[in-house]
Design a protein around this nucleic acid. Structure first.
Lengths: 206, 206
DNA sequence: CCGGTTTTTTACCATTTGGTAAAGGCACGA
DNA sequence: TCGTGCCTTTACCAAATGGTAAAAAACCGG
């Protein structure tokens, strides 16, 4: 019997599934879905290939499991941006959390990037069902802040996209960064300053 | 004899190599290096697999040829940013050219992104030899503009990286965009406005 | 239209790949 | 101690993959 039927997963199952997913994250994030092989994943996980198949129904199932886990984690920082707080603080806080995530989970970031670049074949449903509603909700929130004059006016959708663009870039293009900025960086400070300037309302003319 | 010895390439050679590279661009940009297969490329190019090998020495040779061609094209917009012009105009012109490129050559953009995400295994030399010097040169130029007070002060390296981040994002994350912005966009206008605000020097306090 | 050269096709091949079958191991309660 | 249910390994397999050999076809200047 497979391991994916809905029974209580044993301790060892949990442990091994985690081990597999961690190994798979390495391999998929580095080579993409098609470029990754079960043998690579098996070796990275320190177990035999048929053993992988014992825990997951196949290559695609592993990938899907990764994407599912990823999406939940990925939305968190945006969910945390709350209407109650000070707009500038909330948005900059979101930016900071997103940057932190890029640093802490570069593999996840690359996995996501790879999937989207390839046209999101396995993730489009997630995007539509989970990301889109959240995106719309937070756009509305930002818009209300703008209408209240508490931050500079702009298209909130493109504001969020720009935040994603910058934070993704610093995670995914690490190889390029290491060539261009051998010293390390100052990226976080730059990004925060940039968005602060961008969001500061211009003083009303008089 | 292979086709890569340095003789005059015949008309038909030029034509077929172009055909192959175009097909390979499709496939590599969608599946990454490892995920792409010669059969796919051959079919996309409308010729047999051994015929590919007749024109290129193998899978890797095709990929390398693509990356070489890409890098030249890719640097153009940045090269065009000249010291003689008005700083704001020059930088915004660069941003516009880069955005235009993202729209016109999405496959190239994705190919590049994929290669960098995978650690730039085949492109690091290019980055070091061609991109890095140009990057440093243009950073110095921007810095001189900033020191002259003609645009706002910031780390020029991160300014350029931010421009890349945003322009790449709009090309590479198209699948996500189509979910979140079903209407199309306003991306170009937003990006221009954003960088204009960012670069406008604050009025000197008095 | 001929002879040599370039290009294309056909027939293969060794390796890799995702996946299966089935036999062992292993823990653990009765 | 023995079974019983979970886990792991060994031995495979068919298809796909990158690539080759060599014959056949197309091209082209004379």
């Amino acid at each position: 019997m497979g391991a994916n039927t809905e029974k209580k997963p044993s301790r060892i199952q949990l442990k091994n599934r985690k081990r597999i997913m961690d190994a798979a994250l390495d391999v998929f994030s580095q080579h993409g879905y098609r470029g990754a092989t079960l043998d690579q994943i098996a070796e990275a996980a320190g177990m035999s290939k048929p053993n992988l198949i014992y825990y997951f129904d196949g290559k695609e199932a592993i990938h899907v499991a990764l994407l599912n886990a990823l999406m939940e984690e990925w939305l968190d920082p945006l969910i945390e941006m709350k209407a109650e707080g000070d707009p500038m603080t909330e948005i900059l806080g979101y930016v900071r959390r997103k940057m932190e995530m890029s640093h802490r989970y570069p593999r996840e970031s690359r996995l996501f990037a790879g999937e989207i670049i390839q046209g999101a074949p396995r993730m489009k449903p997630h995007l539509e069902r989970r990301l889109k509603p959240l995106f719309d909700e937070k756009c509305a929130l930002i818009e209300s802040w703008m209408k209240a004059g508490r931050i500079a006016r702009m298209d909130p959708r493109h504001l969020i996209l720009t935040i994603w663009a910058v934070t993704q870039h610093y995670a995914d293009f690490d190889a390029q960064l290491r060539v261009l900025l051998p010293e390390g960086d100052g990226a976080d400070a730059h990004v925060e300053t940039m968005f602060r300037r961008l969001l500061t309302p211009e003083p009303t003319k008089r």
